[in-house]
């Protein structure tokens, strides 16, 4: 016999707190609704999730696997732990790896003070990076009229790739290569300023969590980023349908 109805509301526990959820809500959304902090970097409200930064991993009772909160949906009776010591240690290690991967020099970065990576390091208590730095050789691309791209500060979260593809529809950015050689590129790996597909909308700059993409001619103190346009655009588009 088929169940004659479909349950749409799930009840579950996050860090011991009982919460009710729609079946299409992720653990991350539920946590945010309930003021439970889960760190994220690749997640960006308004574009689809990729689960690649691994910061939002949570423990779910009954499975050994850690699950990304941004892509795990509420299930009836789930018991989620978001902040165990083990998770905190892993998160700090993820940040360690990110800091070591490229050339992040906060003191001379245009996003100093407005950088999500830097902020999270403080928040999660990273006083130093435990692994040796890799010091890759990467060229700054300042060919664009309005913006600059410094891959030394890129953490490969691909927010720019997704926002350019999904919201702007230009798909100027993508990732080339693989492994630690991955690099965000525009068009055929050409200077950004020469990329024909770029509409100069600047959405990528606004969503970049670090100083990898930035406005030209802006001082450090002015280098704040605006994200509220994303959910707004999404709502407006849905309303039009």
């Amino acid at each position: 016999m088929k169940r004659p109805f479909k349950t749409r509301i799930k009840t579950l526990k996050i860090d011991g707190i009982d919460v009710g959820a729609r079946e299409d809500e992720t653990i991350l959304e539920l946590a945010q609704e309930n003021d439970i902090f889960i760190p994220t970097l690749c997640h960006l409200e308004g574009v689809h999730d990729v689960g690649s930064c691994r910061l939002c991993l949570v423990e779910v009772r009954g499975t050994n696997k850690l699950l990304p909160a941004c892509m795990t949906y509420a299930e009836e009776g789930m018991e989620v732990i978001t902040n165990s010591e083990r998770l905190q240690a892993y998160r700090r290690q993820v940040l360690d790896l990110l800091f070591s991967e490229r050339n992040h020099v906060c003191s001379v970065c245009v996003s100093n003070g407005h950088c999500e990576l830097q902020w999270l390091a403080g928040k999660l208590g990273i006083s130093h990076v435990g692994v040796p730095y890799l010091y890759p050789q990467l060229e700054v691309d300042a060919s664009h009229r309005y913006y600059s791209y410094d891959p030394n500060r890129c953490i490969l979260c691909t927010r720019c790739v997704r926002v350019c593809d999904e919201i702007e529809g230009a798909h100027t950015w993508d990732v080339m290569g693989r492994g630690v050689e991955c690099l965000v590129i525009s068009d055929l790996n050409q200077p950004w300023g020469t990329a024909e597909s770029c509409t100069r909308c600047g959405k990528c700059v606004q969503v970049c969590p670090t100083g990898a993409l930035f406005n030209k001619g802006r001082a450090v103190a002015e280098m704040t980023k605006r994200r509220d346009f994303l959910p707004y655009l999404q709502t407006m588009r849905e309303g039009r349908k």
Binding site: N103, V105, C106, S107, H128, V129, Y133, Y135, P136, Q137
Partner: peptide, 18 residues
Amino acid sequence: VSLGDCAVTANVPAMRNR
């Protein structure tokens, strides 16, 4: 005690490492 970013991260001095 590592005092300051240069001791902690190698900071600006490390920019020559490339």
